[in-house]
Design a protein around this nucleic acid. Structure first.
Length: 201
DNA sequence: AATAAGCACAACCGCTCTCCG
DNA sequence: ACGGAGAGCGGTTGTGCTTAT
């Protein structure tokens, strides 16, 4: 496994909050050289930052089309259902919410949802609570799946497929269908065409 | 007005996964 | 098949802001 020094390329890299100048350098560098080449980004950009720090900053803050501010009820609804289905797979959950980052979703879950509703028994009144109570599907903690045929939920890259649920797992499939409907409603309300819709078209 | 406590979010750390030689 | 390097992910911590006392 990699050492910390190897992970960060060199010792003595800058830590802590990013400045506007650093954000600008990072943005310009990625616009010029493209996303993904994180090993070279610190050198190419002139930033004295660990590559992991650069990646995180880009994904969670600098990247265009990041949606900030309050989560809508539809988004919260979707997060709760996806979490019930996928567990703490924040990257997958965030991937279903356009403009929301993994960190955003994870932080929101930990600070709002998880604290408010630590266990289903304590949920009683509002809409979020009812959603959480009425679904009893067991949390599935799989490797990512890909669905063949007409269903496109969840949408994963083909190479990510490792396993998929049993065909007779009715609870799971019902939840998938429900989520697909919820997503369509969410995308319709937000005026965004979902990847699901795009794929069908 | 001062200070403590709580909250929200940004960032870091360490581990696993994936790719490639 | 194996090992090393880089990328990605989730858990945790740090920090700054807000609210309560």
């Amino acid at each position: 496994m990699q050492s910390k020094a190897a992970a960060c390329g060199l010792l003595g890299v800058r830590k802590g909050s990013w400045t506007a100048e650093e954000d600008l350098l990072l943005r310009q560098c990625i616009e010029k050289h493209g996303e993904g080449n994180w090993y070279q980004i610190p050198q190419l950009s002139g930033l004295n930052r660990c590559r992991k720090s650069c990646r995180l900053r880009w994904l969670n803050y600098v990247r265009p089309n990041i949606k900030r501010g309050q989560f809508t009820m539809d988004e919260v609804d979707l997060i709760i259902r996806l979490h019930k289905l996928l567990g703490n797979r924040w990257s997958l959950i965030a991937g279903r919410l356009p403009g929301r980052t993994t960190n955003d979703v994870k932080n929101y879950w930990n600070t709002h949802i998880n604290k408010k509703f630590p266990s289903p028994q304590k949920i009683t009144r509002d809409g979020i609570a009812q959603i959480a109570v009425t679904t009893t599907t067991t949390v599935i903690k799989p490797k990512p799946w890909i669905f063949k045929g007409s269903s496109s939920w969840p949408m994963m890259k083909e190479h990510e497929m490792v396993e998929k649920p049993k065909e007779d797992d009715k609870g799971f499939w019902q939840e998938c269908v429900l989520l697909e409907k919820l997503e369509n409603k969410f995308f319709h309300n937000s005026g965004i065409q979902s990847a699901y819709t795009q794929e069908k078209n």
